[in-house]
Nucleic acid binder design. Sequence first.
DNA 1: CGACACTTTGAAGACGATCAACGCCGGTGG
DNA 2: CCACCGGCGTTGATCGTCTTCAAAGTGTCG
Lengths: 248, 248
Amino acid sequence: MEQVWPAKVQSHPLFKGLGDAHRDAMLKAGHLRRYEDGQSVFMYGDPVRSFYLVCEGVVQLFRETPDGHELTAAVCLAGDTLGAHEIFMEKNAHHMVNAVAARASHILEFSADWLRENARKTGAFALNVLALLSKESRVACVEAEHKSSMSAAQQVACFLERMCVLHGYDPHGFSLPYSKTLMASRLGMELETFSRALGTLRDYGIFIQGGHVSFRDLAKLESFSCADCTIAGSCQEHEQLRVALAQE
Amino acid sequence: MEQVWPAKVQSHPLFKGLGDAHRDAMLKAGHLRRYEDGQSVFMYGDPVRSFYLVCEGVVQLFRETPDGHELTAAVCLAGDTLGAHEIFMEKNAHHMVNAVAARASHILEFSADWLRENARKTGAFALNVLALLSKESRVACVEAEHKSSMSAAQQVACFLERMCVLHGYDPHGFSLPYSKTLMASRLGMELETFSRALGTLRDYGIFIQGGHVSFRDLAKLESFSCADCTIAGSCQEHEQLRVALAQE
DNA sequence: CGACACTTTGAAGACGATCAACGCCGGTGG
DNA sequence: CCACCGGCGTTGATCGTCTTCAAAGTGTCG
């Protein structure tokens, strides 16, 4: 049963500082599974059974209001994890969100107990999980703030910039990893608003044609997108973007 | 150095399952400190040194936009913790938020290393911290959703209901633990909007006079506040509120 | 009693949601 | 090969809600 895990998995921050042998032993407990476009990974209300690590593809996390409106809580790409919150919240929890593949995806799956037990037994792993949740939480918090303080166009700009950096895309030009409809939903705005925002951004140094994005004038762009951001002075993502744009 | 800790501390979920002796040994490392109204606990950019457990009082967490607008990220009351996110995010991190006492408060303080080391060494404690962060994260996520899908009045209603349950107030009548100005800011809306929302809520079974709140018609209230909520069917807080209102 | 912080109320404006129509493109079937 | 269709995205017009600016009301504390 020799299995070669994708680089995204081997070097995942979750396994940092554990040593290769320990990491590989842990990874042995995982099953790599393929989901087709539109296939559900789990649904709202399902009992929580597994912890998931996306190796490739796109997974949409969403909930629905009683009147059928769909709100996406997150979109997971390669390297993102699913299910940790629910697993640690309580024993025998149920999923609070639907997870559906938005294209054919490969997901590495572990049992919920695997996550819980390794966190309990291995201190270093517990700290890695805590770091992971803390980072997610920080992003969620800042984004919530953005909804109150920034215009739709500013939010889109900030989101595109972060997306570029966090997934290592080339800031001079890259393709959106999923549809604009999904991005708009992810940002909590209507598709029309999102579309208009993209138009506005042309005046501020982001060019979008079809699914292709390129950053032209980072100075102008930052002075626009970060004007009303509370962490403008200490935003790691923008720091990295500046570096990435200068280097290439 | 015999110290009697408040009940809120002794029975805090963070120490669940540890045994009284272990818990008390851990608590010995803490210092109880008093902060006056308006006194800062830490400021944005400060190095992260401590983990905080609020024993009494009110602590506002907030950030400021470059143009001076203040956005409050959270308001902590007795039983709430501060600093965990920043501590686990990375070694030698800096605070991403200002923390200021909004009234005279008592806060139990531990070193950041105390939290890190106990999480690393004691599996049960690590799981408790993970549960804590997961729950906070879930709330943050749902609230972000609410901002996109619910009206100001609905958000206020939901917030008041949860506040009542989570702090064990009497649903038939209780006093707001902090000012309306702060609540509005906490909810990411303007004071004027908040004030008008309170007026609207009178039509839906919540009466507010000065700082005094009472729930009258829970059925009507829920059909209003939960109409557009994605977790309406499985909302623990509303479940508890129903029980609390029936019992007393 | 007066000063001040906090809150309410009113009127105007900005922004995003909504409804509607159209353009674009890839696929399917005749 | 072309006509039709459906998914996706854009654009336009209108509407409702929240923000903003302004003023007045309420309460507390010296």
